[in-house]
Design a protein around this nucleic acid. Sequence first.
DNA 1: CGGCGAATTGACCCGCATCAACTATCGTGG
DNA 2: CCACGATAGTTGATGCGGGTCAATTCGCCG
Lengths: 255, 255
Amino acid sequence: MVIAIADGPSQTGATPWVDKLLMKLRQRDDVSAAEEAALRSIVEPPQVYPARRMVIEENEPLDRSGLLVDGLLGRVKNMRDGQQHISELHVPGDFADLHSFTLKRLDHGILALTDCRIAWTKHSAIVTAIEQFPHLGRLLWFSTNLDAAIHRAWTVSLGRRDAAARLAHLLCELQVRLEVVGLADATGYPLALTQNDLANCLGLTSVHVNRVLRELRERRLVTFRGGHVTIADPAGLNALADFSPDYLFLEKRPR
Amino acid sequence: MVIAIADGPSQTGATPWVDKLLMKLRQRDDVSAAEEAALRSIVEPPQVYPARRMVIEENEPLDRSGLLVDGLLGRVKNMRDGQQHISELHVPGDFADLHSFTLKRLDHGILALTDCRIAWTKHSAIVTAIEQFPHLGRLLWFSTNLDAAIHRAWTVSLGRRDAAARLAHLLCELQVRLEVVGLADATGYPLALTQNDLANCLGLTSVHVNRVLRELRERRLVTFRGGHVTIADPAGLNALADFSPDYLFLEKRPR
DNA sequence: CGGCGAATTGACCCGCATCAACTATCGTGG
DNA sequence: CCACGATAGTTGATGCGGGTCAATTCGCCG
C-alpha cells in the first residue's frame, strides 16, 4: 500500500496551506512553476471551522470553493427520516467542493467532522487562472473526476461488499489518500471520527460498526481506537477488502 | 416530475447525433452558436455496438471519449467473486466516458446494455476546442460533475433506502433524465434492461428485484414490463422514493 | 466527583439472499 | 410448422447479516 511520493512543492514559504494540494496534483502530473504560482495566488488564507459546524448548506448559492487545509470534512445528505449519509470524506489537500465551480450549488451539505481549516478561492479567480493556464484547469477538472471515482468505489462497496469488507475498504482508501499528502505512515494514521461517522459513510449502524471493528481487531488486521488507525496486517486487510488503489489514479501522467 | 425543456438545437442538419447532448447542456446553460459549431465539429459520426459488447475495458489507455447517441450504457465493475456492479446508467446525450479526458483510463468498464450508437471525440480535439471556448470547457466539466452528483444519489440509495425505495428512485431518475433529451413522455419511457441489470445497479439480486417490481405494480405505482416503464402514479412513486430532482441540476444558469 | 457523549454488549427480529423449481418468451433449425 | 434450447422472468421455502432496542461501561472535561 506504500506509494512513491512525487517531489514536494518548491516554494512553500508564502502560502503553505496550498502545499498539500500541490502534493496531491504532483502525484498525478507535473505542475509548472507558473501554474503553481497561479494556484497559490488565487487561494486565500485559511479560516477556522470547529468540529460539527456545517461549512456549506445544501443548495446554498456558491461563488467560491474551499480547499481543506487541516481536519476532515464530510459530504452529508440528511434524509427525511432523520438518517444521515456521508457520500465522501475529504482529507487535507482536497479541494472539497471544487465541483461547485460548475454546479453553482451543492446537492449535499459540507460538514466539518473535526476542527478544520479551509482556504477559500473565488470562482471568478479560477476562471481567470485556468483561461491563462488550461493545463491547470485540466488538473483541477481531474481532481473532481477523482472524487467521482471515489464515489464509484463507495457505490461498489455499498452494493456488493459485506460490512467487514466495506469498513476495511474505507480504511485502506484513507491510508492511501493520507499517505499522498504525508499524513499517514506505513503503520497507520490519525482519524478523529466517531464510530457513528463511519456508520454514516458505510450505510451501517454504529452498533454494527462497533462489532465489526472488534472483529477486525481480533483478527489482528487493524485497530481503530483513540482516534488512530493502526494497520497491523496491510496485506490481510487489502485481501479482505478486495482493495486495489487503481481507482485513485496514483500514476503520474500528462493530463 | 415534468420539466420545462429548454429550446432545442438550431442547426440539426449535418450532425444530428450531437443534438441530444446539446439539449442536455441547454437545459443547464446557454450554448452560443459558435460553441455549438465547435462541439459539432469535434464529434465524429457514430459507430454501432451490439448489446452486451464491452465498449471500453477497465484500465485501457484512452485518447478519446464516447458520446452515447442511441441505446443504454452501463459503467460496470466486475468483482473477484464474479459479481457485477453497475455504478451508473447512461442515456442518449450523455458523454459517457468524458471523465477519461482527464483520467486517461477508467476505473471501470463501459458495457453496451442494449444495441448502441456511440460518437467518438478525440481528447486532443477537446483540448483545442475548450482552449478556444473556455465556457464550453466548463459546460463539459459540469457534465462530469453531474455524473458525480448521480453517483452520490446512488450512494445514498444504496446506503439508506430499502429495496422498494431504491428501485423507485432509479425509475424516477431515469424518467427525468430521459425527459430532458425527449425520450420520455409524462407517462413513462422505453427501458430495454433486464431485471438482472436493475439488480446490478441497485445492489440487489434479480430475484428480489422481481418481487419488488411485483409489489410496485400491485400498489399501482409503476409497471416495468416488455422493456417499457409505465408510471401510473408519479406523486406516489416520488413519495415512496423520497425523490427530488435537485441533484440533477435542471435549472438554467451561467456556469 | 458528576455529567455527557461515545463505545460496548446482549437479545431479538426482519429484509433480502440463497437455493431450487418452474414458466414464458423468442430465435433457430429440422 | 413444430421442436428445441437458451435466456429471462416468477414463485416458494429457508437462512443469515445486520437492524433495532435497551442496558451498561468508558473516557474525557469541568
